[in-house]
Amino acid sequence: MNVFRLLGDVSHLVAIIILFLKIFRSKSCAGISGKSQVLFALVFTTRYLDLFTSFISIYNTVMKVVFLVLSYATVYLIYLRFRSSYDSESDTFRVEFLLVPVAGLSFLENYDFTPIEILWTFSIYLESVAILPQLFMITKTGEAESITTHYLFFLGLYRALYLANWVWRYHTEGFFDQIAVVSGVVQTIFYCDFFYLYVTKVLKGNSKLTLP
């Protein structure tokens, strides 16, 4: 555990909590892509199957359970509890265009051809593109509430910090997880345009993000 990894995990947790509380407190999921949230729930489900097969640490187990519970709770808020506020007309990204290639790739390029390992690989690949429905929705509507942009900022920052963690681990322990690193770079690239808008617009005091 190094500082980049810890800050990355904290950033990830902060992002998920921001989104959950935003929906819970405002009793509305307006502007939020339910499809992205279902994909993230799928990411955690397929990645954390090792909760049943291997124990790494109390920290690891607790974080996995928290991520799983919060991701499903968020999906519940969007599709059941506050369904009337869900903007399905703007959430039109075709997720099968992500799921099919990602599933195919996880069978082709993995560390071990076993169900649990293929599902882990699937989760890594899927995570790198899971935010696309949300970004697509913002592009389509041309705006996002600032609280939504804070969520996206911390979610993007998390994987960027993991990149620093992987550089650190490579130099200190020779650790190199090619699948995670390549996917992590791809994932972070998707956020770059957003990071630019976040810094130049939201942090300059605009109440919401409007696209030029």
């Binding site: 990894r5 995990d9 990830h12 990645r47 090792d50 097969t53 291997s54 790494i56 690891n60 974080m63 996995k64 991520f67 560390y111 071990d112 051809f113 076993t114 649990i116 390992e117 882990w120 993991y162 963690n165 997880d177 995670a180």
Partner: peptide
């Protein structure tokens, strides 16, 4: 596979 790959990251 005789040995499972260890993923210690989240």
């Amino acid at each position: 596979a005789d040995e499972s790959v260890d993923h210690d990251e989240l």
